[in-house]
């Protein structure tokens, strides 16, 4: 089973997508090859994808869907010229907490696989991941363990472990209680501390509400 991992982040190998790939790979006995969509010619890559049995595309959520560079690759994809049935699976990580934020992307990815006559392995969605590469690793210890287990299961079975997919996708939507908590003045303030700290460190806190394009 020849698998190719594609990294679909515009930050290529120094973003959160790369961390997801690294932890997925840590569950494998033999690492898989990784290519970076940012650095590829989409037409050439689309053709070379036909040499694999399975494609795993790992990407950040960008404006409720795939980053522009990934859509540019999708535009070049064609069904395999022979009967060879390629399998394709996706891992999407996002900033917002609830995984339902990626629901239209998930629907599109499934429909794309169908369009291309590929076998769809599903889409793993993990929200609340924007700070993965900023905060110390122990904040995300549980996530990294789950990704390692996802990798180990994939190597053994050639598919995503449905239990892990459910766990990573939690919460699908915010509960009323979560909304009330997140909207409470204290939690709102706490949530802003991180952003404001970065803005202050960069000397632009006073400009945070600028409207430069008016």
């Amino acid at each position: 089973m020849k698998t190719l991992i594609l990294n679909g982040s515009p930050r290529a190998d120094h973003g959160n997508t790369q961390l997801f790939i690294d932890h997925f790979q840590s569950g494998l006995t033999r690492p898989l090859s990784v290519r970076y969509i940012l650095r590829e010619n989409p037409e050439k890559l689309a053709l070379e994808m036909h040499d694999y049995d399975t494609i795993l595309l790992v990407m950040p959520l960008y404006i409720h869907a795939m980053p522009g560079i990934v859509m540019k690759l999708f535009e070049k994809l064609k069904p395999h010229p022979t009967n060879h049935k390629i399998k394709i699976g996706f891992i999407v990580q996002a900033g917002f907490i609830e995984s339902s934020t990626a629901r239209f992307l998930e629907q599109y990815l499934s429909s794309l696989a169908n369009r291309l006559n590929y076998t769809y392995l599903g889409t793993v969605i993990k929200g609340d991941a924007a700070a993965c590469s900023i905060l110390p690793h122990f904040f995300f210890g549980k996530l990294f363990k789950q990704l390692k287990a996802l990798g180990a299961y994939y190597e053994k079975n050639g598919s995503f472990n449905p239990l892990l997919v459910t766990k990573l996708g939690y919460p699908v939507d915010l509960s009323k209680f979560q909304v009330r908590l997140l909207e409470s003045p204290l939690v709102k303030r706490l949530n802003q501390i991180g952003w404001n700290w970065i803005l202050k460190r960069n000397g632009c806190f006073e400009n945070r509400f600028d409207q430069p394009y008016l």
Binding site: Y62, I63, A65, M66, P67, G68, I69, M71, K72, L73, F74, E75, L77, Y108, S111, L112, R115
Partner: peptide, 13 residues
């Protein structure tokens, strides 16, 4: 490819 074009998606980003 059944969705918005890559160029338009780049504009949204």
């Amino acid at each position: 490819q059944g969705f918005v074009s890559g160029n338009l998606k780049t504009l949204f980003d």
